[in-house]
C-alpha cells in the first residue's frame, strides 16, 4: 500500500500539492521545488499537460520523484490516450511502483497550445476509474488475462462551484461507485461555497481534499473571479491594497486553510510555480 493510501485510510489530515512538469527535459527546477516539499506534504500531484499545454510525461516525472523519496500522484487524463494507451500507462505506472492515480477528463485541446490536436476522450473519467479497477482484477477491458496484476489508489476531481451543485454530487457518487477513493477539488475561495459543498458530501464514502489556490496578484484573482470561482470582495481588496501581493495571497491561503481545516479531510495546494511558498503557508496555518 502506498504511503498516501495509508494516510487516506488513517484519520489524519491530508496535505497534497501539485507540480507542473516542464516543457522540455530539464527537471532541475522541478526537482529543487520537490526537495523542499519532502516530508511536508503527503502527496505530490504531477499534472498531465495541464491546460492542454504539451509538457513532459507525468509518468516519467512521477518515477523520478519516487526515486527521490517523494510520494507522487500520477494525473492521468482521458484527453490524449485511447483505452489501449490508458491501460498501458496504468500498467506502466504500477510496474514503476506508482500506485496513486488521479483520473480526470483533461482540459480540451482547443484551449491549449496545440488547438489543432485530435481530442481523444475514448473513455470518460468514470469509465477509466472502472477500467483501473478491472485491471486490478487481473483482466483488461477486452476481458484478457494479465500477467502480473496492478494495484492502485484512485482519485478523481470535483468542482464545488459547479452549478447545479446537486449534479456535481451525483457525479461524485458515481465516481465513488466506479472506484474513486479520494477527491481533489477545484479551488474554493468562498466559505459559503465550502459549507454548502461540505453538507452535501457527508455520506460520500471517499476522502475529499479541498483545493486551495495561491493568488499571486489582483489580476489573477480577477481572472479567477471572471471564470466563476467567486473570489470574496474582501480578498480582492486586500490584494489591491498591498505592496506585496504574493505575501497577501499567502495570507489569504493561510486564512482559508485555518477556516476549513477542522471541517475537511485535507487540503490540496495549488501554488502555480510558487511551490516554495507551501512550507510557510502550512506552518502559518498550523499544519507545518
Amino acid at each position: 500500500m502506498s504511503r498516501f493510501s495509508e494516510r487516506l485510510k488513517s484519520k489524519k489530515f491530508i496535505i497534497t500539492c501539485e507540480l507542473f512538469p516542464p516543457k522540455g527535459t530539464d527537471l532541475t527546477n522541478l526537482l529543487e521545488k520537490a526537495e523542499r516539499l519532502k516530508g511536508i506534504v503527503d502527496g505530490v500531484n504531477v499534472t498531465d499537460s495541464q491546460r492542454a499545454i504539451m509538457r513532459i510525461s507525468p509518468l516519467a516525472v512521477c518515477h523520478i520523484l519516487k526515486e527521490k523519496g517523494l510520494e507522487p500522484i500520477f494525473q492521468l487524463t482521458c484527453r490524449d490516450r485511447n483505452r489501449i494507451a490508458l491501460q498501458s500507462d496504468l500498467l506502466g505506472a504500477s510496474a514503476l511502483g506508482i500506485e496513486n492515480v488521479l483520473i480526470l477528463s483533461g482540459d480540451h485541446p482547443t484551449i491549449g497550445d496545440h488547438p489543432e490536436a485530435k481530442p481523444v476522450y475514448d473513455l470518460d473519467p468514470v469509465q477509466l476509474l472502472k477500467t483501473a479497477r478491472t485491471l486490478e482484477k487481473g483482466e483488461d477491458l477486452a476481458g484478457r488475462r494479465l500477467k502480473g496484476i496492478p494495484k492502485f489508489c484512485l482519485g478523481a476531481v470535483a468542482n464545488p462551484s459547479f452549478e447545479p451543485l446537486e449534479l456535481q454530487i451525483l457525479m461524485m457518487e458515481k465516481k465513488v461507485r466506479a472506484g474513486a477513493e479520494f477527491f481533489q477539488t477545484q479551488p474554493i475561495f468562498d466559505l459559503k461555497t465550502f459549507k454548502n459543498f461540505k453538507e452535501k458530501i457527508s455520506k460520500l464514502g471517499a476522502k475529499v481534499i479541498i483545493g486551495i489556490f495561491l493568488l499571486k496578484s489582483l489580476k489573477m484573482a480577477q481572472l479567477m473571479d471572471d471564470i466563476g470561482l467567486k473570489i470574496p470582495k474582501e480578498y480582492l481588496k486586500r490584494l489591491g491594497k498591498t505592496e506585496d501581493p504574493l505575501k497577501e495571497g499567502m495570507n489569504i491561503a493561510v486564512d482559508l486553510i485555518k477556516n476549513i481545516k477542522n471541517e475537511c479531510d485535507g487540503v490540496h495546494l495549488m501554488a502555480l510555480g510558487k511551490e516554495e511558498c507551501i512550507p510557510e503557508i502550512l506552518r502559518k496555518a498550523g499544519l507545518g
Binding site: 477528463s105 482547443t110 477545484q186
Partner: peptide, 15 residues
C-alpha cells in the same frame, strides 16, 4: 465537447 457519457467534466462556467 468531450463526448462524456457519464456526466459533465468540471470545466463548465456559469452553465
Amino acid at each position: 465537447a468531450k463526448g462524456l457519457l457519464n456526466g459533465p467534466c468540471g470545466g463548465a462556467r456559469d452553465g
